[in-house]
Design a binder for these strands. Structure first.
Length: 479
RNA sequence: GGCCCGUUAGUCUAGCGGUCAGGACGCCGGCCUCUCACGCCGGAAUCACGGGUUCAAUUCCCGUACGGGCUACCA
């Protein structure tokens, strides 16, 4: 069905820390492309202007490269189908959306966010499926143009058919059928003029001649909408391949609350990229003949989709550690030493740490005990220490959870920004004071009640490591 | 609530109608060894349930249960 050269892509959105799931999906995309002599494209989906950041985009390149993924085309390396950053393609989406408007496949919707919210609430109460009720579907042409003229804000929605079924043909799962009446009139163009994921995704995949859409299972329910878009444009649809979702130990979708997920963390925690990739390859996929340790070339030569297992694999850190140990042990001593120096005792980190502990030192060898928590992820703080004077366990848990959430939103991990978050938290909560919150944060972050200045320390440790400490603290305090 | 996806030991998986259900992590025991780790040997532990189809179901089909995802002007 597809005689075109294989082209696949990953399309992360630069809204947070580089995610292990991105590497997971990226790996399978890359392997499939390489196996078929095709191309692997990296596209940045930064259509959410309120959440996308440059820092996050850079971090994606850095982390994906670190783990060993290489792409043939992307914002940073260019290519014949650019630009590869969606924020630079706004006009393309608008032009295409205009075509849809013209062909009656889409319509302008003037409904307020407020009305939509009430509508959804009502539908939930009535136990009906929550979807747009189509009020603006049949607006008279004159009204539409007059309201547009007068500057009323609007979005553009896809006009989904009222009857019939849409079939999603998934390479791994076969035919998945949807009643068209179940499918919402998806917003295609937001009122800020930017496209939603759905529009941008379909337009780009077509324009970039993507042949196989390999993405996570969570996208299955929106695939019928995408198919409707391909049909509306009169385009050939790609082959859809929905991979299972990585899971937490409790089988929910993997999340930073319950698992380390930031690639930056895995790097700092001392995992080798080759072990990471090898481990991710074993999530849902297996080599023939029970081989567990293998490299990319071996995987590529053996890869086939029918060896995919569809149940969501639990991301098991212990097994990753075992595998990583296998790789570490076979390294020549000098290589291992080089990696420790490059990753654990990174030049810049050591410099920062030395600055921070200098005034506390009386002997050179005190460097080691004074700074050990900067260089290891293995900090276990007992429950008693995590509950400072004047707090109880429940309050400590709440504060740590809240702080952790606020800290998540800090995109530029600098001491000033960290301090601002902590101070703002104290100011807005009457049941805690500065002293308690800072001490609690110190203990959570460093595992100690005595440390160099807190904010500078947290900055030097880096976001990934700090977040992990908060996660661990939460786990030990969990009721 | 609605719509989808999934279901082999605690976890990752092999299996693709007839197997003593294989491997790995973890766990337990032993060996190696100055200790630990590594390595080696051994052990406990699995086909969610109920109906079909079939001479024969872990395997195919249908239900149920359970788990998960989606249900935004986020991706």
């Amino acid at each position: 069905m597809n005689s075109r050269p294989v082209r696949v892509r990953i399309a992360p959105s630069p809204t947070g820390d580089p995610h292990v799931g991105t590497a997971y999906i990226g790996l399978f995309n890359m392997i499939f492309a390489r196996q078929n002599g095709g191309s692997f494209v990296l596209r940045i989906e930064d259509t959410d202007q309120t959440r996308s950041t440059k820092e996050s985009e850079e971090a994606i390149y850095r982390s994906l490269r670190w783990v060993g993924l290489t792409w043939d085309e992307g914002p940073d390396v260019g290519g014949p189908f650019g630009p590869y950053r969606q924020s630079e393609r706004t006009e393309i989406y608008q032009t295409h959306c205009a075509k849809l408007l013209e062909s009656q496949h889409a319509y302008r919707c003037f409904c307020s966010a407020d009305r939509l919210e009430r509508l959804r609430e009502e539908q939930r109460r009535m136990k009906l499926p929550t979807k747009y009720d189509g009020r603006c579907r049949e607006l008279a042409a004159e009204e539409v143009s007059s309201r547009t003229q007068s500057g009323d804000p609007f979005v553009i929605r896809l006009k989904t058919p009222d009857d019939g079924i849409t079939v999603v043909n998934d390479l791994l799962r076969g035919e998945i059928q949807y009643e068209n009446t179940q499918i919402d009139d998806q917003v295609l163009l937001k009122s800020d003029g930017f496209p939603t994921y759905h529009l941008a995704n379909v337009v780009d995949d077509h324009l970039m001649e993507i042949t196989h859409v390999i993405r996570a299972e969570e996208w299955i329910p929106s695939t019928p909408k995408h198919i409707m878009l391909y049909n509306a444009f009169g385009w050939e649809q790609p082959t859809f391949i929905h991979m299972p979702l990585l899971r937490n130990a409790d089988r929910s979708k993997i999340s930073k609350r319950k698992n380390p997920v930031s690639l930056e963390f895995f790097r700092k925690a001392g995992f080798l990229p080759e072990a990471m990739l090898n481990f991710l390859a074993m999530m849902g996929w297996s080599m023939p003949n029970d081989q567990e340790k293998f490299c990319l070339d071996e995987m590529r030569s053996q890869f086939s989709w029918d060896r995919m297992s569809l149940s969501g694999p639990v991301f098991n850190l212990e097994k990753l550690e075992w595998l990583n140990g296998l790789y570490l042990r076979e390294l020549p001593v000098n290589d291992l030493k080089a990696r420790i120096l490059a990753e654990v005792f990174r030049e810049e980190l050591v410099t920062e740490v030395v600055k921070l502990i200098q005034e506390r030192m009386r002997r050179l060898d005190e460097f080691v005990p004074l700074s050990s928590f900067f260089f290891t992820t293995d900090v276990q703080t007992p429950v008693e220490q995590l509950v400072p004077k004047g707090m109880d366990k429940k309050l400590a848990h709440r504060v740590i959870r809240d702080l952790s959430e606020h800290l998540d939103n800090v995109t530029s991990w600098k001491s000033g920004n960290i301090e601002a978050v902590l101070r703002a938290y104290v100011d807005s909560h009457d049941d805690v004071n500065i002293k308690q919150v800072f001490m609690l944060s110190r203990i959570v972050a460093t595992g100690r009640s005595a440390s160099p200045p807190l904010f500078e320390t947290m900055e030097a440790m880096g976001k990934a490591l700090c977040q992990d400490r908060f996660r661990r603290a939460l786990a030990t305090l969990r009721p």
